[in-house]
Nucleic acid binder design. Structure first.
Length: 556
RNA sequence: UGACCUAUGGUGUAAUGGUAACACAACUGUUUUUGGUACAGUCUUUCUAGGUUCGAAUCCUGGUAGGUCAACCA
């Protein structure tokens, strides 16, 4: 393939190329993806994963997967496992699997080191007292009385005893001695170690003090010799502290860079809120197909390739953004169109009797599996006198632009015959219960000598051979474009009709449907088999609909 | 009444002092045994006021708007 015009670099890549040009770190590039194992990964993490692993790949570097597990209260092994599975599924391989908790001993030494340098002290103030002394963004804080009165020896002694479990939670913390008057609130003597009597998912009960994020993250980067520590914009104010810790400890100078996190329309990307949806049963677990989690999207039938393409298209910048979910759906359709097996499924059936077709006759018709992929072959579909078509493919009084079935009108049954509607059968309430049609005998697909041209082609299934399938139709989880910006409880903006379960009639070939195979239900959308399927009950998820210009026209 | 970050079509992202472009969305057509796909096209842009410069989306200053920061969370 000819080399396309060079893709412009995002600002992170520019920084890396500049560093490379300057010979920084001898050309070594090491990034890291550092999730806290307190929830499942979502589409926002996918952006970060693609960025971190992507730039490393591009510049011959490596990426570590590091779990930022410094708060034992919220973290669980279940999350660790799901995160690893999701990163792998997305298609990335980490150089090393690491844990901030691997560094607890080292981090403790770092704290001791700071104390010895007179750069950290034990504070006995309550959190309320500390909050007051901290000041506000416009008013400088004041020094704690413990700040200068305690000697290095006393601080060393107290911190050691904190570690030994001699004090109860909340009674003492270790603080960095920086500047209570800094305009950066994070520099006003931040807490770097706190007492937590909790069992850690990896270190068990070994520790009763745990480092805070700011005392663990930069140092972990430094220990691993991460060259480019890429995080989201909310950490910009942390950078000064990140650099202060590394500078004070005189360790490898990893550098932090920040990009704008992804916001997706009609969705939320807050682990805390997603957790709430799960625990309050608004959805059926983290992998509910309506969730913007990687596991949810996977279950819904989104492909890793589509998600990677999406992350690539949204770009990397420092501006707050709200990406239209239609771009994600575009990427999903774009991929699925190329690989999905076409099948026929009638979601909302109405019966059609082909009155001039012999009773009891079953004909086997050939159906193409994928017009986009000529290697994909074909399959056989049974055709008979009684078939089912989609209710909205018939209109008693069709408008001019409607070119499906109407009384006296003709349509092509995909891969089969042209039929004409002769009669409408209604019940006592005037509801249409079936249609009587006649077929044009010499109009069979691939063998059409009728010379008749019809504008519409519709899908169908043969009634006796069709199989029942539960089909789960999903709509957006939220009613508003940007739920995170609305006032009040975000749950008020949930779309309570986001899940619709129906029973559809699908062609018999689908009895052999397999997990992870994308299907296109012809003219309806992309669907995939759900793990809830059993030998005698098929369950499909709707991944995404086809682009539907008729629906737009019809709603005018 | 602070510090920091940001400002380019409806939404995103490029243009790295030298012709504002690409994608999505929206809208038209053409092709089509999927009202899909493909193809062709239309639409709509540099927050504002100054300054530097032969030349500014880009550099500087002021303003405006949005975001972030006062967890023993990450």
């Amino acid at each position: 393939m000819a080399e396309a015009t060079e893709k412009p670099l995002n600002f992170i890549e520019q920084i890396i190329e500049d560093d490379l040009a300057k010979g920084k770190n001898d050309g070594r590039i090491l990034t890291r993806f550092p999730p806290e194992p307190n929830g499942y990964l979502h589409i926002g993490h996918a952006k970060s994963i693609c960025l971190n692993f992507g730039v490393a790949q591009k510049y011959g570097g490596k990426t570590n997967l590091r779990f930022d597990d410094t708060n034992p209260v919220t973290e669980e092994t279940e999350y660790v496992e799901s995160i690893k599975a999701d990163v792998k599924w997305l298609g990335f391989e980490w150089a090393e699997e690491l844990y901030a908790s691997d560094y607890f001993d080292q981090l403790y030494e770092f704290a001791l080191n700071l104390i010895k340098k007179g750069l950290a002290y034990v504070d006995d103030s309550t959190s309320e007292e500390m909050a007051v002394m901290k000041g506000t963004p416009t008013v400088a804080g004041i020094n704690s009385s413990y700040r200068d009165e305690r000697s290095i020896e006393e601080n060393l002694d107290l911190f050691t005893r904190m570690r030994n479990g001699e004090f109860t939670e909340g009674t003492r913390v270790l603080r960095a001695k920086i500047n209570m008057a800094s305009t950066n609130m994070l520099m006003r003597d931040p807490i770097i170690y706190r007492i937590k009597i909790a069992t850690h998912h990896r270190t068990g009960d070994k520790w009763c003090i745990y480092p805070m994020y700011d005392f663990a993250h930069g140092q972990s980067d430094s220990i691993e010799q991460v060259t480019h520590s890429i995080c989201t914009l909310e950490f910009v104010p942390h950078r000064e502290l990140y650099d202060w810790c590394i500078g004070s400890l005189e360790i490898f100078p990893s550098k932090q860079y920040e990009f704008a996190r992804l916001n997706l329309s009609y969705a939320i990307t807050s682990k805390r809120k997603l957790l709430k949806l799960v625990t309050d049963n608004f959805v059926n677990g983290w992998d509910d197909p309506r969730m913007p989690t990687i596991s949810g999207m996977r279950r819904r039938g989104y492909t890793a390739q589509a998600i990677r393409e999406f992350c690539d298209r949204i770009g990397i910048a420092k501006r707050d953004n709200l990406i239209d979910v239609s771009l994600l759906e575009f990427c999903v359709r774009e991929h699925l169109n190329k690989i999905a097996t076409r099948v026929m499924a009638v979601l909302d059936p109405i019966k059609v009797v082909i009155t001039n077709y012999p009773k009891g006759q079953v004909e086997e018709l050939k159906a193409e599996n994928n017009p986009e992929d000529h290697e994909s072959g074909s399959r056989i579909m049974p055709f008979s006198r009684e078939i089912l078509i989609e209710k909205d493919d018939f209109m008693e009084n069709p408008t001019k632009k409607y070119f499906r079935l109407g009384l006296g009108l003709m349509v092509r049954l995909k891969n089969a015959y042209i039929i004409k509607c002769d009669d409408i059968v209604k019940d006592e309430n005037g509801e249409i219960i079936e249609l009587h049609c006649s077929y044009i005998e010499n109009s069979r697909s691939g063998n059409d000598t009728s010379g008749i041209n019809v504008k519409g082609t519709i899908h169908w299934v043969s009634e006796t051979q069709a199989v029942d399938a539960e089909v789960r139709l999903y709509d957006r989880l939220f009613k508003v474009e940007d739920p995170s910006r609305e006032d009040g409880d975000f749950k008020e903006y949930l779309n309570l009709e986001s899940l619709q379960v129906i029973t559809a009639k699908v062609e018999p070939a689908l009895k052999n449907a397999t997990l992870n195979t994308p299907y296109q239900f012809l003219r309806k959308g992309y669907f995939c088999l759900d793990a809830d399927s059993t030998a005698d009950k098929l369950v499909f998820n709707k991944t995404v609909g086809l682009k539907d210009t008729w629906a737009k026209e019809a709603s005018k």
